[in-house]
Simulated assay, not measured.
Amino acid sequence: MSDPRHAVLGCARCGAATDHELHYAGRLLVSSSCTVCGLRIDLDVRRRYLSDLASRIRSKPRRVVRRLRHHPVTFTAGLPRSTVLKPLRMIDEVRLVLAAAERARRRTEQR
C-alpha cells in the first residue's frame, strides 16, 4: 500500500488541529485518521474511484511517452521494476477502497 500522507487538520473529537494520516487511492482521499485520538473517517469512493481509474488508464500512454521522451535512461532502467510493482500497487488501491467502503457502511448501519 502507498505510504500515508500527513497533514494538520481540525479533529472533531480532539477539538484542535492535530496531525492526521491521509490515505489515497489514486487521486482520491479514502480515509483520514487522527494520530492523537485515533478518530478515523472512511469514505465510500467506489464510484468515483472507477471513474478516476478509467481516466488514469486513458492518460497512461501519454504519460509513458512523456516520461520516455524527457528521461529515457531513467525510464528504461525502471521499466522492469515498475512492470512488476504496478499490478501490486493497483491491488493495494482496490483493497483500500473496498475496506474503507465496508467500514463506512458499517458506521452508517450503527447509527
Results as ranks from 00 to 15, higher is better:
79 L>I: 01
69 R>V: 14
36 V>W: 11
66 R>L: 15
50 L>E: 00
63 R>A: 08
49 Y>K: 03
75 F>Y: 10
51 S>W: 02
79 L>H: 01
73 V>W: 13
67 R>S: 11
68 L>Q: 01
47 R>D: 14
74 T>M: 15
51 S>A: 10
60 K>T: 09
39 L>V: 11
80 P>A: 01
54 A>K: 06
77 A>S: 02
39 L>M: 11
74 T>G: 15
73 V>T: 13
46 R>I: 10
72 P>H: 08
50 L>T: 00
55 S>W: 02
39 L>W: 13
36 V>F: 13
52 D>A: 10
55 S>D: 08
83 T>D: 02
79 L>V: 03
82 S>V: 13
50 L>W: 04
69 R>L: 15
68 L>H: 02
67 R>F: 10
76 T>H: 03
75 F>E: 08
75 F>R: 00
60 K>C: 06
66 R>I: 07
42 D>T: 09
62 R>I: 02
75 F>Q: 00
50 L>F: 06
50 L>R: 05
39 L>S: 14
45 V>H: 04
80 P>I: 09
51 S>R: 06
43 L>F: 09
40 R>S: 11
72 P>R: 05
80 P>F: 04
48 R>D: 10
38 G>L: 12
82 S>I: 06
41 I>F: 07
38 G>D: 13
41 I>M: 13
75 F>M: 07
37 C>H: 15
46 R>D: 09
71 H>V: 02
72 P>A: 10
42 D>G: 03
53 L>M: 07
82 S>F: 12
82 S>P: 01
81 R>V: 07
67 R>V: 04
68 L>R: 01
72 P>S: 09
38 G>C: 11
39 L>A: 14
61 P>D: 00
60 K>V: 01
39 L>H: 15
51 S>G: 04
40 R>C: 12
52 D>I: 00
77 A>D: 06
50 L>H: 02
77 A>K: 13
47 R>P: 03
70 H>Y: 03
47 R>Q: 10
64 V>S: 07
45 V>G: 05
58 R>K: 12
73 V>Q: 08
73 V>M: 06
64 V>I: 12
41 I>P: 03
66 R>C: 04
48 R>I: 00
54 A>W: 00
60 K>H: 12
64 V>H: 10
82 S>Q: 09
60 K>Y: 12
66 R>W: 11
45 V>C: 07
40 R>E: 14
63 R>Y: 05
59 S>R: 11
75 F>W: 05
50 L>A: 05
38 G>M: 15
65 V>E: 13
47 R>H: 08
77 A>V: 15
57 I>W: 03
53 L>R: 12
42 D>H: 07
37 C>T: 14
60 K>G: 05
80 P>V: 08
47 R>V: 12
42 D>N: 09
37 C>S: 08
83 T>W: 09
71 H>Q: 13
62 R>Q: 04
83 T>V: 10
58 R>P: 02
